[in-house]
């Protein structure tokens, strides 16, 4: 009994032989529609921030540093590669590439920063007050945007009701260095 099962196992192992790929030396093509590193097309991007509002990992940030300059930052270190940004982009400016070899010692290697020149109204000097039915507005669900003051207001500020002492200790506390 013992011997027969061992012989069976040897046969089972011999049949497929070696299946290990010579991966780093021979590249392995990924499947079609693979979700790798997302790539932005700055020609197509209109700066609506829909990707930032829908990113589950909060890895796309939007910053308006002045009236006419919007900076979009993609921080790949936190990306979950879900491809949600590519799904919601109304201009198809985001594609999921086949790039998956992203291990790096430098975070900047996988960080993408895009500076967009935004138009403002010639008459009032503010950004366009868009109609409420357009695509961009539809996408702005109550998500989270880095600097979106209006949307920040809906995020509950728990701290108002919380024990001030514990909160202060939290703010003063420094994490142990590893």
């Amino acid at each position: 009994m013992w011997l027969t099962s061992k012989i069976k196992q040897i046969l089972m192992v011999l049949k497929p032989g070696v299946v290990t790929l010579k991966y780093p030396f021979e590249p392995r093509p990924v499947a079609k529609d693979f979700r790798g590193q997302p790539a932005w097309d700055h020609h197509k991007c209109v700066g609506c921030g829909g990707c930032a509002a829908h990113c589950p990992a909060r890895t796309i940030l939007v910053r308006d540093i002045c009236q006419e300059l919007r900076i979009m930052i993609y921080d790949g270190a936190r990306c979950a590669y879900c491809g949600r940004c590519a799904d919601v982009c109304p201009e198809d400016a985001i594609v999921m590439t086949e790039q998956f070899e992203l291990a790096t010692g430098d975070r900047d290697d996988i960080t993408v920063t895009m500076e967009l020149f935004m138009l403002t109204c010639q008459r009032c000097g503010r950004c366009y007050n868009m109609e409420t039915t357009n695509m961009i507005d539809k996408m702005e669900l109550k998500g989270f945007r880095y600097d979106h003051l209006e949307m920040r207001a809906v995020i509950p500020k728990a701290t108002e009701r919380f024990d001030a002492k514990v909160l202060e200790a939290t703010e003063r506390y420094e994490r142990p260095r590893t």
């Binding site: 728990a158 514990v166 506390y173």
Partner: peptide, 19 residues
């Protein structure tokens, strides 16, 4: 710390009490 119950609504999600 005793008496801090993190799932209560008034506790901030990113609270880090001292170790």
């Amino acid at each position: 710390p005793e008496g801090v119950h993190p799932l209560r609504k008034e506790v901030p999600y990113n609270l880090v009490p001292p170790a």
